[in-house]
Design a protein around this nucleic acid. Structure first.
Lengths: 201, 201
DNA sequence: GTTAGCATGTAAGGAGTTACATGATTTT
DNA sequence: AAAATCATGTAACTCCTTACATGCTAAC
C-alpha cells in the first residue's frame, strides 16, 4: 500500500521520465506542481533522492555524458531514470485504487496522465469523482444533523467549501466525458472480456 | 511563531469556546471543519487534549456539573475552556501575520471570525488575499520561463489550479467588501477602542 | 569585492497517522 | 446475542520542516 511518501517519489520519477535533471531544478518544478500548498524543502528532496539512488531507481549522469554543456560550473548532480525506475514509474501510474485519488496523489497522477493509457485515466478520474461525491454526501448528511444555530462565518465557510468541491466534480465530469468521447474514436476493442468490476469505494 | 501544531489547538479552543464537549464529539466536528482534506485521528486529538490539560487551557467538567443529563453513560470526558484557555484563544485570534493566512490556519480563523472584531477580520482577509495573489504571480512568472512544449494534462492542471485560486481571490474580495460596507455603518471615530462588536447575526 | 542566487547536504525535532488495545452502550 | 458505534487511549513510525552548514558562480 502506497505511503504518502511515495508522492514525492512518483513526482520525481515522472519528471525524470521527461528528461534528466538536477536536484535544485527538480525542487523548482515540484514546487510549481504541488506548490499550491506548501513548498517542498531541501530537507525532504535530497534525502528522497538519496533513497532512490540506493534503490537504483535513478542514477547520476556522468558529466561527460552531457555534450554541448559548458565544461564549467561543475558541481550540480544530474539525475536520470534507470530502467528499474522507469518500470517502477509505469507500475505506480497503472495502479488504480485509493492511493491514486487521494488529494495529493491525484494531482501527480493527473500531471503525468500522458504516460498512461486511457482506461487507467478513466478509472482514476472516476475514482476521484466518487471520492469527492462521498465527501459532499457525508458533509450534507452530518450538516442535517448538527444544524441548529449556525454561526454566520461557519456557514459561509461550509457554503464555499461545498461549492468548491462541486466545481471540482464538474471539472472531473468534463474530463471524463472528453476521455470517453476520445474512446469512441478508437476502433472496437479487440479482446476485452469485461475486466473485474473494480469495486471502488 | 505559531507552529503548525497550533492548528488543532486553536480549533479545539474555538469549539470549546462555544460550549463544553467531549473528545469524540470534538473529533467529529473537527473533521467536518478541516475535513476537506484528511481526517483527524485519535492519535492526534487525544494527546493534544492531554497537552492542553497540562497547560491548563482546558479542564475536565465534573459529571455533576451537567444537570439534565441522564446519570448513566458515564465514561466520556467532557472538556471546557478555562479562563486561561479563553485568553489564549483571544490572543491567537488577534494575531495578524503569516500564521493567520496559511492554508490550514486560515480556515480555522475564518470559522471563528465571530469572536474577533472587524479590523482583525479585515487584515486577515486581506493578508490571505495577497498571499494567494503572490502565488498566482509566481506561477505566472515561472510559467513564462519554463513554457516550451507543455504536456496536455500538465497544462490542464495548471489552468484549473489558476482558475481555482482566482476564484478564491474573488471570494475573499467579496468578503472584504462586505466587511468594509459594514464598517461604514459604524460611527467614524477611528481612534476609539470601539468595544461594541457588531452583532454576530 | 560583496551581495544575491545557485547548489547540495545534515541534524533535530514536530506533527500526525497507523495499528494496537480496551471497554461501554445502543441497535438489530 | 451479536454487531455496530460510541469512547478513550498508547506506541511506533513516517514524513516533512526548520535550522544549520558549506561552497560555487553571477551580477552589481
Amino acid at each position: 500500500m502506497a505511503r504518502r511518501g511515495e508522492t514525492i517519489e512518483l513526482a520525481v520519477l515522472g519528471l525524470l521520465h521527461e528528461g534528466p535533471m538536477h536536484g535544485y531544478e527538480l525542487r523548482k518544478r515540484l514546487n510549481l506542481m504541488l506548490g499550491w500548498g506548501r513548498l517542498l524543502s531541501y530537507g525532504s528532496l535530497y534525502p528522497a533522492l538519496k533513497k532512490m539512488l540506493r534503490g537504483s531507481l535513478i542514477a547520476e549522469v556522468a558529466p561527460e555524458q552531457v555534450p554541448g554543456a559548458v565544461a564549467s560550473r561543475r558541481q550540480r548532480i544530474v539525475y536520470q531514470l534507470t530502467d528499474k525506475g522507469a518500470a517502477e514509474f509505469e507500475r505506480l501510474m497503472s495502479e488504480v485504487g485509493p492511493t491514486a485519488w487521494e488529494d495529493d496523489n491525484f494531482d501527480i497522477r493527473f500531471r503525468f496522465f500522458s504516460s498512461t493509457d486511457m482506461e487507467i485515466r478513466l478509472r482514476v478520474l472516476e475514482g476521484r469523482r466518487s471520492r469527492l461525491q462521498e465527501r459532499l454526501d457525508r458533509v450534507q448528511r452530518e450538516l442535517a444533523m448538527t444544524q441548529k444555530e449556525v454561526d454566520r462565518y461557519a456557514a459561509e465557510l461550509q457554503r464555499h467549501g461545498v461549492e468548491s468541491v462541486e466545481r471540482e466534480v464538474r471539472w472531473l465530469s468534463d474530463l471524463i466525458n472528453a476521455e470517453r468521447g476520445a474512446r469512441t474514436d478508437t476502433p472496437p476493442p479487440p479482446t476485452s472480456p469485461a475486466p473485474s468490476p473494480a469495486s471502488n469505494d
